[in-house]
Amino acid sequence: MLKLLREVFRTGEATHKYPFAPLEVAKDFRGKPEHNAVSCIACAACTIACPPNAISMETDVAAGTRTWSISYGRCIFCGRCEEACPTGAIALSPDFELAVARKEDLTKRAVFSLAACPSCGEPLAAAKEVAYVLDILTRSAASPEEAERARFLVSTCPACKRKHDVEQLARIGVERQMENR
Protein backbone atom coordinates (compact mmCIF):
# COMPACT_ATOMS: atom_id res chain seq x y z
CA MET A 1 0.00 0.00 0.00
CA LEU A 2 2.81 2.38 0.92
CA LYS A 3 4.64 1.44 -2.26
CA LEU A 4 1.55 2.27 -4.26
CA LEU A 5 1.11 5.63 -2.56
CA ARG A 6 4.72 6.43 -3.21
CA GLU A 7 4.25 5.54 -6.88
CA VAL A 8 1.19 7.78 -7.10
CA PHE A 9 3.03 10.73 -5.57
CA ARG A 10 6.11 10.11 -7.67
CA THR A 11 4.02 10.20 -10.85
CA GLY A 12 2.22 13.44 -10.14
CA GLU A 13 -0.03 14.44 -13.01
CA ALA A 14 -0.01 11.94 -15.85
CA THR A 15 -2.65 13.41 -18.14
CA HIS A 16 -2.41 16.02 -20.88
CA LYS A 17 -4.44 19.21 -21.20
CA TYR A 18 -5.71 18.05 -24.60
CA PRO A 19 -8.14 19.14 -26.16
CA PHE A 20 -7.68 22.46 -24.36
CA ALA A 21 -4.02 22.52 -25.33
CA PRO A 22 -2.57 21.08 -28.55
CA LEU A 23 -1.22 17.54 -28.37
CA GLU A 24 2.22 17.02 -29.75
CA VAL A 25 2.72 14.01 -32.02
CA ALA A 26 5.93 12.26 -33.01
CA LYS A 27 8.01 13.52 -35.88
CA ASP A 28 6.85 11.77 -39.09
CA PHE A 29 3.50 10.87 -37.54
CA ARG A 30 1.18 9.56 -40.22
CA GLY A 31 -1.92 11.76 -40.15
CA LYS A 32 -4.39 13.20 -42.64
CA PRO A 33 -3.08 13.12 -46.24
CA GLU A 34 -3.08 16.62 -47.77
CA HIS A 35 -3.58 16.87 -51.52
CA ASN A 36 -2.13 19.68 -53.58
CA ALA A 37 -4.23 19.98 -56.74
CA VAL A 38 -1.75 22.38 -58.33
CA SER A 39 1.05 19.84 -58.54
CA CYS A 40 -1.28 16.85 -59.09
CA ILE A 41 -1.30 15.57 -62.67
CA ALA A 42 -4.23 13.15 -62.21
CA CYS A 43 -2.15 10.15 -63.21
CA ALA A 44 -4.04 7.83 -60.80
CA ALA A 45 -0.91 6.19 -59.36
CA CYS A 46 -2.22 6.87 -55.84
CA THR A 47 -5.59 5.28 -56.58
CA ILE A 48 -3.83 2.04 -57.50
CA ALA A 49 -1.52 2.14 -54.49
CA CYS A 50 -4.26 2.92 -51.96
CA PRO A 51 -5.07 -0.36 -50.08
CA PRO A 52 -8.58 0.57 -48.83
CA ASN A 53 -9.62 2.38 -52.04
CA ALA A 54 -9.95 5.68 -50.16
CA ILE A 55 -8.60 7.52 -53.18
CA SER A 56 -10.49 7.14 -56.42
CA MET A 57 -10.68 8.70 -59.83
CA GLU A 58 -13.74 9.11 -62.01
CA THR A 59 -13.85 10.15 -65.64
CA ASP A 60 -16.79 12.01 -67.12
CA VAL A 61 -16.29 11.90 -70.88
CA ALA A 62 -19.31 14.09 -71.66
CA ALA A 63 -18.12 16.88 -69.41
CA GLY A 64 -14.48 16.31 -70.36
CA THR A 65 -13.38 16.04 -66.75
CA ARG A 66 -11.56 13.62 -64.49
CA THR A 67 -12.36 13.91 -60.79
CA TRP A 68 -9.86 12.85 -58.16
CA SER A 69 -11.28 12.27 -54.69
CA ILE A 70 -10.22 11.07 -51.27
CA SER A 71 -12.52 9.85 -48.53
CA TYR A 72 -10.96 10.43 -45.13
CA GLY A 73 -13.54 8.03 -43.73
CA ARG A 74 -11.91 5.17 -45.61
CA CYS A 75 -8.29 6.32 -45.29
CA ILE A 76 -6.01 4.13 -43.16
CA PHE A 77 -3.13 6.64 -43.10
CA CYS A 78 -0.57 4.19 -44.48
CA GLY A 79 1.08 6.74 -46.74
CA ARG A 80 1.31 4.54 -49.83
CA CYS A 81 -0.13 7.42 -51.90
CA GLU A 82 2.76 9.63 -50.85
CA GLU A 83 5.24 6.95 -51.95
CA ALA A 84 3.53 6.43 -55.31
CA CYS A 85 3.05 10.07 -56.30
CA PRO A 86 5.49 11.16 -59.04
CA THR A 87 5.07 14.89 -58.36
CA GLY A 88 4.80 15.03 -54.57
CA ALA A 89 1.24 16.27 -54.79
CA ILE A 90 0.01 14.26 -51.80
CA ALA A 91 1.72 14.07 -48.42
CA LEU A 92 0.74 12.92 -44.96
CA SER A 93 0.40 15.71 -42.41
CA PRO A 94 0.55 15.44 -38.61
CA ASP A 95 -3.13 16.42 -38.41
CA PHE A 96 -5.21 13.75 -36.65
CA GLU A 97 -8.38 15.71 -35.87
CA LEU A 98 -10.68 14.59 -38.64
CA ALA A 99 -14.13 14.75 -37.07
CA VAL A 100 -16.73 16.53 -39.19
CA ALA A 101 -20.39 17.35 -38.64
CA ARG A 102 -21.55 15.98 -41.99
CA LYS A 103 -20.35 12.76 -43.61
CA GLU A 104 -19.93 14.42 -47.02
CA ASP A 105 -17.29 16.69 -45.56
CA LEU A 106 -14.99 13.68 -45.22
CA THR A 107 -14.57 13.61 -49.00
CA LYS A 108 -12.29 16.01 -50.79
CA ARG A 109 -12.30 16.40 -54.57
CA ALA A 110 -10.23 17.91 -57.33
CA VAL A 111 -11.50 18.20 -60.92
CA PHE A 112 -9.11 18.06 -63.87
CA SER A 113 -9.86 18.63 -67.54
CA LEU A 114 -9.22 15.97 -70.16
CA ALA A 115 -7.03 16.45 -73.21
CA ALA A 116 -8.53 15.49 -76.56
CA CYS A 117 -6.76 13.42 -79.19
CA PRO A 118 -5.68 15.87 -81.95
CA SER A 119 -6.70 13.37 -84.69
CA CYS A 120 -10.17 12.26 -83.63
CA GLY A 121 -11.07 14.71 -80.88
CA GLU A 122 -11.99 11.95 -78.39
CA PRO A 123 -10.87 12.53 -74.78
CA LEU A 124 -7.57 10.80 -74.10
CA ALA A 125 -6.14 11.51 -70.64
CA ALA A 126 -5.92 14.32 -68.12
CA ALA A 127 -4.47 17.37 -69.84
CA LYS A 128 -1.92 17.89 -67.06
CA GLU A 129 -0.72 14.31 -67.30
CA VAL A 130 -0.20 14.59 -71.07
CA ALA A 131 1.61 17.90 -70.61
CA TYR A 132 3.80 16.44 -67.84
CA VAL A 133 4.91 13.47 -69.94
CA LEU A 134 5.41 15.63 -73.01
CA ASP A 135 7.56 18.02 -71.07
CA ILE A 136 9.85 15.23 -69.87
CA LEU A 137 10.12 13.64 -73.32
CA THR A 138 10.75 16.86 -75.25
CA ARG A 139 13.45 17.87 -72.79
CA SER A 140 15.21 14.54 -73.13
CA ALA A 141 14.79 14.28 -76.91
CA ALA A 142 18.02 14.20 -78.90
CA SER A 143 16.66 16.04 -81.94
CA PRO A 144 13.66 18.21 -82.86
CA GLU A 145 12.35 15.32 -85.02
CA GLU A 146 12.41 12.94 -82.10
CA ALA A 147 10.63 15.54 -79.97
CA GLU A 148 7.93 15.88 -82.60
CA ARG A 149 7.55 12.10 -82.78
CA ALA A 150 7.24 11.96 -78.97
CA ARG A 151 4.60 14.67 -79.09
CA PHE A 152 2.59 12.60 -81.56
CA LEU A 153 2.92 9.40 -79.54
CA VAL A 154 1.93 10.98 -76.23
CA SER A 155 -0.97 13.13 -77.36
CA THR A 156 -2.64 10.70 -79.77
CA CYS A 157 -5.17 8.16 -78.55
CA PRO A 158 -4.42 4.42 -78.94
CA ALA A 159 -7.07 3.95 -81.64
CA CYS A 160 -5.63 6.72 -83.78
CA LYS A 161 -2.11 5.42 -83.22
CA ARG A 162 -3.16 2.02 -84.49
CA LYS A 163 -4.82 3.57 -87.51
CA HIS A 164 -1.72 5.63 -88.17
CA ASP A 165 0.49 2.53 -87.97
CA VAL A 166 -1.68 0.64 -90.44
CA GLU A 167 -1.57 3.55 -92.86
CA GLN A 168 2.20 3.75 -92.56
CA LEU A 169 2.52 0.04 -93.24
CA ALA A 170 0.21 0.22 -96.24
CA ARG A 171 2.36 2.99 -97.70
CA ILE A 172 5.52 0.90 -97.50
CA GLY A 173 4.44 -1.57 -100.15
CA VAL A 174 4.02 -5.31 -100.15
CA GLU A 175 7.54 -6.29 -101.26
CA ARG A 176 9.27 -4.53 -98.40
CA GLN A 177 6.81 -5.93 -95.90
CA MET A 178 7.65 -9.41 -97.08
CA GLU A 179 11.39 -8.65 -96.89
CA ASN A 180 11.08 -7.62 -93.28
CA ARG A 181 9.56 -10.94 -92.34
Partner: peptide, 14 residues
Protein backbone atom coordinates in the same frame (compact mmCIF):
# COMPACT_ATOMS: atom_id res chain seq x y z
CA UNK B 1 4.84 6.50 -27.81
CA UNK B 2 7.67 4.24 -28.83
CA UNK B 3 5.56 2.71 -31.61
CA UNK B 4 4.43 6.16 -32.74
CA UNK B 5 7.99 7.35 -32.97
CA UNK B 6 9.29 4.28 -34.83
CA UNK B 7 6.40 3.74 -37.24
CA UNK B 8 4.40 6.97 -37.37
CA UNK B 9 1.35 5.41 -35.77
CA UNK B 10 0.47 4.24 -32.27
CA UNK B 11 -1.29 1.09 -33.34
CA UNK B 12 -1.50 0.03 -36.98
CA UNK B 13 2.17 0.21 -37.84
CA UNK B 14 1.74 -0.18 -41.64
Amino acid sequence: TLAEMLTGSRKTYA
